[in-house]
Amino acid sequence: MSLLAFQRDMRDWLVREDLIAAGRMGASAGPGLVVYQNNYRAQLVECLESSFARTRAWIGDEAFFHSAVHHIESVPPSSWTLDAYGRDFPATLARLHTQDPEIAEIASIELGLEELFVAADSPVIALEKLDNIDWDRAVLTFALSTRFLELRTNAFAIWSALVDEKEPPVSRNLDTPQVVLLWRQGEKCRMRPIDDAECQALRDLRSGMSFGALCRDVTLFCGEQQGVALVGQWLGLWLSDHLIVAIKDDWSAQPRTSSYL
């Protein structure tokens, strides 16, 4: 048996418990193969436990273990690093717990935060560079780690309570989805719920809308005084949270209508 064939049989045994593949390695290899397989699965369970600690706390050790075993049997590792193994675990939980959708959403929160650790770094904008910007034509660039997570249950409230070691609320479906903004500020992973207006503003700006066009649309929708105050509040918050990493005057930026109107 060639080394490549042996490696393939070993993989098939570990992943699928392929008895034919095990048989090709000889009867004497049987006890050792069982040990290898147990170690392989135990390592994957530990990987999921460390990545989804709040999910485990919510559903309990036994339910989490059974979910982890099902995931290991149906989704073998496909990356060079175990850090990526949990990427599909929320989807597995969604399939297993259709009557409890908050479970998969809590796991999605944990996955989102973990992925922020390996997101690309972004520079911090210097406030002194804000002078002399033509805000009517300014185009904002946001941190590469910025992402949105849409939740249809009160998973964020449950997750927050678990983090604070408080009694979590009873799970419930939301009347309207809640959007949570995730980003990395320096070495800290950050997240906060945002309302529909801020979410739409961020989506428009990230797609290339000029800051001036956003201001015009928001003031038309909310009124001049309230619109200016709201956009100014957003800008200050985005800058202090290090969400904005660059601002440039783009004279090719074409004003367009946002989804506010």
Rank of each mutant, 00 (worst) to 15 (best):
G223S: 08
Q178L: 14
R192I: 07
C199F: 07
K166H: 06
P177A: 05
P168R: 03
C199E: 04
M191L: 15
E187H: 15
F221D: 15
P177I: 10
D217M: 15
A213E: 07
R184H: 15
R203M: 04
L174N: 09
E187N: 14
D164N: 13
V179I: 12
C222S: 15
G208E: 04
R190K: 13
Q200I: 04
M209L: 14
D175S: 13
E165A: 15
D217R: 06
K188A: 15
L182T: 03
G186Y: 07
R206F: 09
Q185N: 15
C199W: 00
V179F: 07
I194F: 02
D196P: 00
C222P: 07
D217P: 03
A229V: 02
D196F: 02
M209A: 15
R184V: 14
I194C: 03
D175I: 05
R206D: 05
L214I: 10
G186E: 14
K188N: 14
I194W: 06
W183C: 04
K166L: 10
V228Y: 00
S210Y: 11
V179K: 05
V228W: 01
D196G: 04
D196W: 01
S210A: 13
R172K: 12
C215M: 13
Q226W: 06
C189N: 05
C199T: 11
R190G: 02
Q185H: 12
A197Y: 04
L214R: 12
V228K: 01
K166R: 15
I194P: 05
C215I: 09
C189W: 09
F221H: 14
Q200Y: 02
C199Q: 12
E224S: 00
G227D: 04
L202A: 00
D196M: 05
M209P: 02
V180F: 04
D204C: 01
C199A: 08
G212K: 03
K166D: 13
T176R: 09
V163H: 08
K166E: 15
E167A: 15
R192C: 04
E167C: 00
L214A: 10
R190F: 10
D217T: 09
